[in-house]
Design a protein around this nucleic acid. Structure first.
Lengths: 140, 140
DNA sequence: TTATTCTGCAACTATTGTGGTAACAGTTAT
DNA sequence: ATAACTGTTACCACAATAGTTGCAGAATAA
């Protein structure tokens, strides 16, 4: 476990909604079955997607959820940001050792590198739309 | 904790070796002080870098380590691969639900997306050399 | 109105990946 | 021989993650 699966699962959920493999009126329970995880975790993830404006939900007895936009207009980057997935790599937060200037200044240098890499990653994710994922799934 | 810091620390270590902030004959103990972690963890990380041919070490009483190549010829990608850092994102490994074809085929689609993103990330890391990092550190 | 069945949210628990620690074998300079 | 380092392994503690449970709120149907 201990790895962050929310992004992966969020894409799965949205793909499910996008291709309507279940008929109208999909509940978190249905989605949970497809992903094979707990309904609660689905709702937790779905809540983030909802806040990001990627899905809309209905409460109440006939509760359900659906895509808020066309799958073509949802990129993996949107999803990545919505679930607040971890950065490309982490930077260690040890206290600086005054005697060694590498120790004092490495953090800034690493952050610069991280920013650059993060941008490259984001650009790549932005190029993939949910529609593309759905298409790949259906092709198989 | 629980985040992977090896990459970050490896860069720190190599930067330290590259700029020779400590005089010749750097031991894992010295490096550990700079990074502010345990000597053992330094050795563990250093061992990976050594296997990848980025550093060379001397065993025995006067043990030490130094860069195997010029800092200009070491990219962050080399370091990233040497420490076997985690991928851009993880893919969930839940079992397939036969009734739902999204569940059955999402993994392949995700892997395709991951490969693409991973390449973008690698390309970005490849553009940054250790010499660049050292330069940034010294500039500060 | 009442019962039902969803979502939304907030604990709490269990698992597991991570670095920290310690111990030991191997190597080399003194 | 002794000392001091690397290389490696095994084990421990911590923390982040997902799983679980419970409950309030909302909408529908009777």
């Amino acid at each position: 476990m201990a790895n962050n699966l929310q992004f992966s699962i969020a894409v799965h959920l949205l793909a499910g909604l996008a291709c309507g493999c279940d008929q109208k009126g999909v509940t978190s329970g249905h989605l949970a079955e497809s992903v094979n995880t707990s309904a609660s975790f689905v709702r937790r993830t779905l809540a983030k997607l909802s806040k990001a404006g990627l899905v809309e939900t209905a409460t109440g007895k006939a509760g359900a959820c659906w895509l808020a936009k066309d799958a073509k207009n949802i990129s993996l980057l949107d999803i990545y940001q919505a679930v607040d997935a971890p950065k490309a790599f982490a930077i260690h937060g040890y206290s600086e050792q005054k005697a060694c200037f590498v120790s004092c200044h490495i953090k800034a240098a690493l952050e610069k590198a991280l920013t650059k890499t993060q941008k490259a990653m984001a650009a790549s994710l932005a190029e993939i739309s949910l529609a593309q994922i759905v298409s790949d799934v259906k092709k198989k």
